[in-house]
Design a protein around this nucleic acid. Sequence first.
DNA 1: CTTTTATTCCGTTAAATATACGGAATAGTA
DNA 2: TACTATTCCGTATATTTAACGGAATAAAAG
Lengths: 257, 257
Amino acid sequence: MKQSDIDDILINPDQYLRNVLVDNVIFGYHNKELKVLLQQPIALDKWTVTGGYIKKTESIEEAANRIAYSRTGLKNLFFQQFRAFGNPTRSIDGSKNAKNFTKLSGIEVPDDLWIFDYFVSVGFYTLTEFSMVKIEKGVYEAECQWWPIDDLPALMFDHEHIISEALKALRLHIAHYPIGYELLSEKFTLPEIHSLYETILGKPLDDRNFAKRLMATGIIVKLNETKRIGAHRSPFLYRFDKEKYNEGLENGAALAF
Amino acid sequence: MKQSDIDDILINPDQYLRNVLVDNVIFGYHNKELKVLLQQPIALDKWTVTGGYIKKTESIEEAANRIAYSRTGLKNLFFQQFRAFGNPTRSIDGSKNAKNFTKLSGIEVPDDLWIFDYFVSVGFYTLTEFSMVKIEKGVYEAECQWWPIDDLPALMFDHEHIISEALKALRLHIAHYPIGYELLSEKFTLPEIHSLYETILGKPLDDRNFAKRLMATGIIVKLNETKRIGAHRSPFLYRFDKEKYNEGLENGAALAF
DNA sequence: CTTTTATTCCGTTAAATATACGGAATAGTA
DNA sequence: TACTATTCCGTATATTTAACGGAATAAAAG
């Protein structure tokens, strides 16, 4: 939730949709590591993905973007809806109750307030270069930080499940559509994009076959420049052919590694 | 909506989630035809998919099942969530307003009642054998009937979009997981399952290669019986190997035709 | 200036998979 | 008995995927 979300929904409940919210699984890639952005509400010992409420004036996609912007400062991220989660017990955890809420917000709320009903969560995931992100912690968050995807802290509610479903969806997506535009610099080397795919898929990919297939799609083009990487042979630089890339996003680009 | 849903949500609004509902795209297959179950609210000229509100005591999956049961009389259908839809204009159509609502339900409702806020719709699709379905029309429905997938009537709101997304998801699903268990009799012939796949995918499939691949997955087994089909060679009967079939549902069964 | 180290960069071959396609067998009907 | 509509199989070819080793290069170390 952004800075004033908790306050805002209590003060202006009529401006928000009830019983439905957005949860963003923000994946961050940098230097061969895949991480996920989590936050820890004040006075609680478990972590959550970043999520928030939906205004009546915005679509669920706009809500996801607004909420992600409030945490990362980034706009126009690549977003993908992957699933909705909804059952009466998903947010029962001992932590979502009026007492904790009052402790957090300082606002006295009745025990049977509608915010303690169960919420259907619409899950989105997004991919960013995490060195570009300036994390903005919400006022009710004790912490907000990146966690390695294979070494997560204790998570609240069903958020571990949400993350694993998001990762599954991301890995499925990567097999059918191109990725990388938001994650690599404008010019990048083959080893760089190769590591990116290996990291996200969590498995090694033969470098020669990888390059062959990637080139075959036409989404990247080789430049006549190399990059200095110190005491090693200088790799060639490449860039995305944005048209082919977008076409791949539309119609699929078989990269089923 | 089932018989009393509209009444019920007005009388007992506290028992339902607000601003979020379930829409079921019910596909029906029979005799080489793929259809979708639509209903037409009384006094309106457009059609809708079958949908309904979610009780606070049930999960979204349970809601989808309950709502489908109220229309088809069938339980334990194969259900698949495919997407959520949510934006402020999705249900603006001239038809969702207090006047029409009163006309339908006979209950006077204020113009600014929360049910006229926008609802996030969680979309599920399901597949049934439509000769097995005994359609049960709701009291506020003028009609409820099957429509051929490629010849739909005028649809309300964004329901045409919802159906096309459901069909896209179904065709994607069929490429990765087995289908047919809910659609064919216990014993079926190769030509029968072959037509099923052709109909759903909307394109011809080579019969020899189809049979080869299907057998290779192990999800069907040949029986030592044939079926009488009149003046033609009697085709052999097959049945699903339920274990292999379920395993295919879990882990995928590459049938990418 | 020669050697060493770590990395990039290709190309070929074998195996697996997918595609294309024709003709014999069968159950009834005429 | 022959005719019709349908089931049922198998093989050859093309395409795709997977596996793999060795030469070239940039800098640092000796």
